[in-house]
Simulated assay, not measured.
Amino acid sequence: MIDRNFNLLAEIDDYESLQFTRRFYRAGEFEMHISLHKQGVDQLHKENIIVIDNKMHKAGIIQSRNIGQNDQGIEVLVIKGPTLGGILDRRVTVTDNFDRVRGPAETVMKHYVNNHLINSVNTQRRVPFMSNAPDLGRGKVTPWQTRFEPLNMVVQEIAKWCDIGWQVRLDYSAKKWVFDVLPGRNLTASQNTLPPVIFSRDFDNIMSQSFTDSDQQFKNVGYAGGQGEYEDRLIQMVGGGTGADRRETFLDCSSAENAAELVDLGNQKLSLLKSIVSYDGQIINTGSFIYEVDWDLGDIVTMQSKSWGVTLDSRITEAKEIYEPESKIEISLGEEVPTITQIVRQLTTEVKRSD
């Protein structure tokens, strides 16, 4: 555990439980349970940083502390917080006019991180220990615009639209938190460039499977409404579909300056309403595929269940590391099934964007 100045505060390995969740498109989270009277617990204060196995990309900010008693009457401290990427949740995209930028996803995301965390015009908004990794121009080229939106939501939406991940990692030598993108690798059974990774009960490397295929929120045609009122409002159609398979919706895109930008913004919003296909499972450590060596967060792998008739080539969007008497790893592939909180937050963001 360290503080913001990278001073070592304690080394703790005698905890009851630790769960550390890494996510591809957004910040992850952690939760630790530890007896209140163990060595190093006195350093587990808010805003200190826990680092897992001294790995630069596995660190989290302590934001919550709770003390209680377990079933044996032992006093236990529970700490929680986001991974380092949670710091993006502390900013909104403050700008007089819409901040518009076009470029590769990496360039666009780092533009907003720079403007609101690193080199903000308002010096009080700057975080001196934040930095961007060198921009290599990776990811799909996209236009983007934002104004008074949560920075973490902006970066998350860009990441999902362009299918590229991101993280904030530690740089001990420079004493910086570094924002960077995660492209991921194609490790599916259908490619022959890299050794494929296949998770299946037939290979005895996965258990506790769960598969979701849902069209409940799916829309494939959007009528993007731009500037103007009533009959004078500019409308552009995005997407496509015919007959009963055509699912229409209206998209409020009043911040678009012209027809071309209206189409871009409409496509971005419509992409949030795609089908939900997800596959979850607990990985069995058989030695056939080693975590963070043969496969990692963000890689596209093949999940297979012959008894369910399901084969899915999809990206690993979440990896939960559970450190208990029996450590294990749980992964999620494909789209994240939205919670009520996420849906409400998304709708709130849409309102702010159209104001």
Results as ranks from 00 to 15, higher is better:
22 R>M: 10
98 F>C: 09
122 N>W: 05
21 T>W: 13
30 F>H: 05
130 M>T: 06
80 K>P: 11
37 H>T: 06
122 N>Q: 06
52 I>D: 04
72 Q>N: 15
109 M>E: 04
75 E>A: 09
123 T>M: 09
29 E>G: 09
69 Q>A: 13
80 K>N: 04
77 L>H: 05
109 M>T: 04
47 E>R: 12
115 N>A: 03
121 V>D: 07
50 I>C: 07
41 V>P: 11
77 L>F: 01
120 S>V: 02
92 V>Q: 05
30 F>P: 01
61 I>C: 11
88 L>W: 01
65 R>V: 02
37 H>R: 12
104 P>T: 12
126 R>A: 01
117 L>N: 02
24 F>A: 10
24 F>G: 08
35 S>T: 00
87 I>H: 13
81 G>T: 02
131 S>H: 13
66 N>S: 15
121 V>L: 10
132 N>P: 09
52 I>V: 01
117 L>F: 00
30 F>E: 04
98 F>D: 06
46 K>Q: 13
119 N>P: 12
35 S>R: 15
102 R>T: 09
89 D>I: 03
38 K>Y: 13
80 K>A: 10
109 M>D: 03
68 G>N: 10
52 I>F: 02
117 L>Q: 05
67 I>L: 14
126 R>S: 07
88 L>K: 12
88 L>G: 08
122 N>S: 10
58 K>Q: 13
57 H>K: 15
101 V>F: 12
125 R>D: 04
37 H>Q: 13
